[in-house]
Write a protein that binds this DNA or RNA. Structure first.
Lengths: 139, 139
DNA sequence: CTTAGCCCCGTAGTTAGGTACGGAGTCAAG
DNA sequence: CTTGACTCCGTACCTAACTACGGGGCTAAG
C-alpha cells in the first residue's frame, strides 16, 4: 500500500492528470479542487482522490459542461442526487442536439456554396461571396 | 434616387443592420469596415454599401467564420478570387463536419448516461457520476 | 552544505467578440 | 437659440478558461 499516487506534489499531480500546474491552482481558486493543508511553511501533498477529481473535471469538460456546471455536478456527488445530476445532463443533451442541428444547417449551406463555386459555369460573381451579401435565411 | 439608406449616421446604420453602434466602431478598429471621412469637426455619414458590408459580416459569422476569416473573405471580394474564397469555405466545412462528429459522439455518451440514470435498477452509485470518474474513451 | 529544481502566492496577460462609460462636440427641431 | 439626442474618441470592462511571471521559500540529491 505504499502507492506512489499518494503523497505527490502539485507538479506530480499535474503530470498524473495531464494538466498544467497553473490549471490546478486555478481549479482550487474556483473551488473545484480543495487545497490540502500546508504544514507550516512546507509544501502541500496530493493523493489519488485528487487525481480522480481531475479526471472527473476533464471528462465533464469534454462532454461540454462548463466549469460552473462541473461544480454543480461535484456538489451532487453524494450518492443522493442522481436525479438532479441526470437532469443537468439531460439539459446538456438537449443543448448538444440543438448545436448539432445548427451545424447541420451550416453544413448544408456551406457545401452548397462550395459546390456552386466549383461548378461555376455561367456565373459572373463568386457564388459564395454573393451569398454572404445576400444573407442566409434560417439560422 | 433620394434613398434614405444613403447618408445615415452611425446610429442609423446600426439600426439598419441590427447591430450595436459600439460593434460598428469595433469593426472599424479591426479594419472590417472603413470609416467615411469626417468633414472637419462634423460627423460621419454612411451608405448602403456599409449596410451590405455589415450583412456580409453577420452572415459569415453565422456560418462560423471568425472575424479574421471574415477579413480574408472581404479581401478576396474583388471578382478574381473565387477559388481562394471557396477553399476557405471548404476548410470551414471540413471543420464543421468534425464538430458535428464530436457532438454526435457526445450526444451518444450523454444519452446513454441519462438513460442509465433513469432506468436505475440495481445500481448503487449514480451511473452518470461514475462515468465521469471513469473517463470517456474517444473524444 | 550547496544548489538545482520545485513549490507558494499574488497579480497580470491572453483570446474572441464584443459592451460600457464618460466628457466634449455637433446637429436638428421647436 | 436652446435643448435633447446623437456622435466622437479613448479607455476600460466583460466571459471563459486558462497561462505567464516573478520574488521568495523549501526540498532533495550529491
Amino acid at each position: 500500500m505504499d502507492d506512489k499516487s499518494e503523497r505527490v506534489t502539485i507538479g506530480g499531480l499535474a503530470k498524473a492528470a495531464e494538466v498544467n500546474v497553473e490549471t490546478i491552482r486555478y481549479y482550487q481558486r474556483r473551488g473545484l479542487l480543495n487545497e490540502p493543508v500546508r504544514p507550516a511553511g512546507g509544501i502541500r501533498y496530493y493523493g489519488s482522490a485528487d487525481i480522480a477529481r481531475l479526471v472527473f473535471i476533464k471528462t465533464a469538460q469534454k462532454l461540454g459542461f462548463t466549469l460552473s456546471e462541473v461544480s454543480d455536478l461535484l456538489r451532487l456527488d453524494d450518492g443522493a442526487h442522481c436525479v438532479e445530476a441526470s437532469e443537468l445532463a439531460a439539459r446538456k443533451l438537449h443543448n448538444v442536439r440543438g448545436k448539432i442541428d445548427t451545424l447541420k444547417r451550416i453544413e448544408e449551406l456551406l457545401s452548397e456554396m462550395v459546390t456552386r463555386c466549383h461548378t461555376q459555369q455561367e456565373t459572373v460573381a463568386c457564388p459564395l461571396i454573393s451569398s454572404l451579401y445576400k444573407g442566409v435565411g434560417i439560422l
